[in-house]
Amino acid sequence: MTRILPGVIAMAAIVVASNILVQHLFGQWLTWGAFTYPFAFLVTDVMNRVYGVTAARKVVFAGFVVGVICSLIGTQIMGEFGPLVTWRIAIGSGIAFLTAQMMDVAVFDRLRRGAWWRAPLASTLVGSSLDTALFFTIAFSAQLAFIEPANDVSWANEVLPLLGIGPQVPLWVSLALADWMVKLSLALIALVPFRAIVTRISPDVA
């Protein structure tokens, strides 16, 4: 456990920071949390490359527990329009995080023997896409209103041009697409710190 403690701490810090920063808007389609959360995949991939699948899964589970605690705290804090975290958001966040991160671990492990960049890039792209699809659908889709009937998500289902310029879609689809685009961009950028961190920790597996 000691060897993966830095990974656990880093994952916990990213999850906590993202839960705080998601409350603050960045432009029309994003929150500041969109720029911190994707680095959870970087932590998972570093742990996977250096210490293996089992260690990576332990770090993911630690992040999941921290995320659940943050969500539960958020449901008890009242903001201007109700709880900072609704039960739909809490459920969507938990399911998306655990499913996407575990998929990231599995894809990375399958590709670990290829070129150094292929496993972290492919696993993050797959995991990020799954995370975005699950979270936004569970948290805001009108079709899943039965999850929390008392939670009014009509604002998220207002039909508007996609990202302000495309075809007419529910607002949450634009939010999801913007979030996904940030994740994909950071997946490429994260290759630089991934290579540097792995080389520093364990040059023989870099």
Rank of each mutant, 00 (worst) to 15 (best):
G74A: 06
D109Y: 10
E148S: 13
G114H: 11
V126E: 05
V60S: 13
L162T: 04
G79K: 10
Q143V: 02
V105W: 08
L72D: 09
D152M: 07
W155S: 08
V153D: 04
V159N: 09
G79E: 00
R113M: 15
P149C: 02
S128K: 01
D131W: 10
Q76P: 11
A56M: 08
F61W: 15
T54N: 14
I147C: 06
L130T: 14
L134F: 07
M103E: 10
S123W: 15
E158G: 11
F64S: 10
L98F: 12
A119V: 04
R112N: 13
M102N: 14
L84Y: 07
A90S: 11
A139L: 03
L160Y: 09
I89W: 01
R118T: 13
M78E: 11
A119F: 09
S129A: 13
A122P: 10
T137F: 01
W155T: 12
A122R: 02
V68I: 09
G164T: 11
S129R: 09
S154K: 01
A150Q: 15
R112W: 02
I147W: 01
A62N: 03
R57W: 00
A115E: 15
D131H: 06
V105F: 06
R88S: 10
A96Q: 02
S93H: 02
M78H: 09
L144I: 00
R110G: 15
K58P: 00
V59C: 03
I77N: 04
L121G: 09
V65G: 02
T137G: 04
R112L: 15
D104C: 04
A156T: 01
V60T: 12
D104N: 13
V85F: 02
T86E: 08
G127Q: 07
V107E: 09
E148H: 13
A142C: 05
W116P: 06
P161S: 11
G74Q: 02
A56L: 10
R118H: 09
T54S: 15
K58R: 13
A119S: 09
E158I: 07
D104W: 03
V85D: 00
L111G: 07
V153T: 14
S93Q: 12
A122I: 14
Q143N: 10
S71A: 07
L98Q: 07
L160G: 07
A55T: 10
G82D: 03
A106Q: 12
R110C: 15
Q76V: 01
N157R: 10
I147F: 04
L130C: 10
A62M: 12
V59T: 00
F97D: 03
